[in-house]
Simulated assay, not measured.
Amino acid sequence: MELVTIADVRAAQDRVAGVAVRTPLIPAPWAPGPGELFVKPEMLQPIGAFKIRGAYNKIAGLTADERARGLVASSSGNHAQAVAYAARMFDAKATIVIPDTAPDHKVAATRALGAEVLLVPPAERDILPRQLVEERGYILVPPFDDGAIIAGQGTIGAEIADDLPDVDLVLVPVSGGGLISGIAAAVKALRPEARVVGVEPQLAADASESFRTGRRIAWHPEQTHRTIADGLRTVSVGVLPWEHIRAHVDDIVTVTEDEIRAAMRALVVQGRLVVEPSGAAATAAYLSIRDQLPESARTVAIASGGNADPAMLAEILSAG
């Protein structure tokens, strides 16, 4: 099984240029403690999350005939919007299978981008897309278990290493593993000394358990759907991401629901950055469990998305 290389990531950078925003590293002087924290604000992407990088890289790499067959993807929301957005740019039909537990605003945003949305129970989210591939000839655009997707997400890591060549630690939220796989592949190629650490909710800690045991473990949807971080509810990391994690990732840690909420408040109130729960997980690790992280003078936390439900965001802010 071939891993994504820095050459793949650089090629993806060229492909997504002008579509994905080259997000800056924002200093976070409000974060206490030794060393510096920088936040990578992927909520500034056109669809409000990092997913546009991988989705566009994948779809742009298809032939015109493949795109004309129609595209299908499964997602809790952000990958859905990314595929719908990229498909619209190529005038391709997109069908998105979304768990019926996904936030309403993410479902509405996907439909608004022109995609057909099919709501299914969480356990069926990965089954129906493959059925549609077989029955209708659609091209599958996976959320994470694909080399082109991983390379697209890896453009984040290349940007970090280019903008902060002496970075010591990169904190990355983990769901299906495409984001951390791409970032780790790029960072380790350009800055081998840096550590890459994944962050998961304790209530959806399949990747952490897999990392500790050395074998890929799946959790039940009933377990992972307990977390407020809806973008991190995937029941297991993908097969290809798992190989990247084994090769490049230094550790995977977990944070509590309260720590995620506190990080959301800090990012919004002190950092002026609107994030969804999944996008706050990496910062939560820096703020709340730094004793479990490698020592670092310069840390980057990936704020992976900002598609927060307004009512939930208001509730979390008022609780502070």
Rank of each mutant, 00 (worst) to 15 (best):
L232D: 01
L240Q: 09
A185R: 05
D230T: 04
T227G: 04
G198R: 00
R226A: 11
V199P: 00
A186K: 04
L240I: 13
S236M: 12
A186Y: 05
E209C: 09
H225V: 10
T227N: 04
T213L: 14
V239Q: 13
V235M: 08
V239K: 09
R216A: 11
L203V: 05
L203F: 05
I217H: 11
D206I: 07
H225R: 11
D230W: 01
A189K: 08
A229G: 02
L232Q: 00
V197E: 04
R212D: 15
G198Q: 04
T234L: 07
E209I: 13
H220R: 14
V187H: 07
T213R: 15
P192V: 12
R226V: 12
E200Y: 03
T213P: 05
V235P: 03
A229R: 00
R216P: 09
Q223W: 08
R226S: 09
S236E: 15
L240T: 10
E193P: 00
D206S: 14
R212E: 15
E222Q: 08
A194R: 06
G214R: 13
A189W: 10
T224P: 06
A185F: 06
R216C: 11
D206N: 12
L232A: 01
Q223R: 13
T213I: 10
P241W: 03
V199G: 00
T234E: 10
R212M: 12
R216K: 13
R195C: 11
R216T: 13
V196F: 03
S236H: 11
T224G: 08
I228M: 11
E193V: 07
D230A: 02
L190M: 15
I228F: 02
H225P: 01
R226P: 04
R191V: 14
A184H: 01
R233F: 05
G231N: 02
D230Y: 01
H220I: 06
Q202R: 10
E222D: 15
A184L: 02
V197H: 02
A184K: 00
H220A: 15
P221N: 10
K188Y: 11
A194D: 12
V196D: 06
R195G: 08
R212T: 15
L190Q: 14
W242N: 04
T227K: 01
A229I: 02
G238Q: 04
L232T: 01
D230C: 01
E209W: 11
A185L: 07
L240P: 00
I217G: 11
P221Y: 10
R195S: 15
A194N: 10
A186H: 04
T224C: 08
L203T: 10
L240R: 08
T224W: 05
T227Y: 04
A186V: 07
R212A: 15
T234K: 02
W219M: 13
P192E: 14
P201F: 03
A185H: 07
A194T: 11
V199I: 06
H220C: 05
A189F: 11
L240E: 09
A204P: 03
A218F: 09
R191D: 09
G238I: 02
W219L: 14
T227R: 02
